[in-house]
Nucleic acid binder design. Sequence first.
DNA 1: TGTCACATGTAAGACGTTACATGATTTT
DNA 2: AAAATCATGTAACGTCTTACATGTGACA
Lengths: 188, 188
Amino acid sequence: MALEHVLLGMLRTPASGYDLKAEFAASISHFWAAELSQIYPTLQRLEKRGLLTSKSEPSGRGPRRKVYALTRAGRAELRAWLQQSPKVNVERLEWLAQVWFMDELEDPKRSLAFLGALRSELAFEVAALEKIEQQWRAEDPRYPDQLPDHEFYPQLTLALGLKKGRARVEWADECIARIKTRVRRRQK
Amino acid sequence: MALEHVLLGMLRTPASGYDLKAEFAASISHFWAAELSQIYPTLQRLEKRGLLTSKSEPSGRGPRRKVYALTRAGRAELRAWLQQSPKVNVERLEWLAQVWFMDELEDPKRSLAFLGALRSELAFEVAALEKIEQQWRAEDPRYPDQLPDHEFYPQLTLALGLKKGRARVEWADECIARIKTRVRRRQK
DNA sequence: TGTCACATGTAAGACGTTACATGATTTT
DNA sequence: AAAATCATGTAACGTCTTACATGTGACA
């Protein structure tokens, strides 16, 4: 399971399930997400398999935290995964399916409304990534190419997120313009 | 369920489950995929709910085909779905997660091998989309902006597939160049 | 006669989401 | 006193993949 490997990777520095959830939201959200209800059982499973160890710690506020750390076997499993060659899967994009069948509505106004809403969602995602980038840049003057490996490889993924996000916003703008042109042409 | 709606959309022209699987592979593969083992039960469910009807037909070769068609209720359901505003979900990209943690291997040669393999997979996908585009262009001189709505909206999705695919290949090339630069710098 | 393409299905398991349950501590 | 945040979990359900089962007709 890929989530297992992602968690192993994140746990190179020990953390609780709750911490991990926060980290998904903070930095990894452009290519992975997981709910607590999936994280907790997965951590338990990894511990049972001997890839993680846990210890209960008092938390400054709230109940005790269960902090997980990689075992030697866990690190070996992580390395083995990193050496697997990339598998590119089909991404299911429901909103693109909606665009595909949009002719059914026979209403360019609806199409424009849909693509407008889509554009704003996509732009919002880009803005979130740009904020993360600004933070990274502010934190370390070596950003991006002089960063140590531990931050350099994450930066590569951020670069893709930004590139892809901007391409999508551009695409939405082009769609809107093309549909408007068609409407005008039909009115003549 | 989104697959249900995608099937309803595809069934505006009647088809069998087997046909639909072929169409996923032929034209929709850049944003959706489904196995026969998922398609058949889903079609049955949609029929039970009154959104589809089926009739058994002899096939030129092989066993009889079960051809499904939209009912009035099915068309209404399709329209209702198309009027829902877009929901953009997190796409889980395992290969990007591998890049994120790649520093663990402490081996730029492995990173380059990984990104090289990735680049070729991504380029292969772009090539497949370009082939589809060439076909469409050859079939209809109105491609892309003078196409009737029924082909115009699908073309919009193809345009995104191409744009995104090319951006990803570009990104992989940049990653490879940046890693090589780092290696050279370290050797000095 | 064997293999390939056509054609439809079931079953088991993996993965992910939503809802529910519980309780501590801090802030308003 | 209520709400928000910290913290861990279970249960039910929905979705997707992989493996298995069955059978027809065409072609080599």
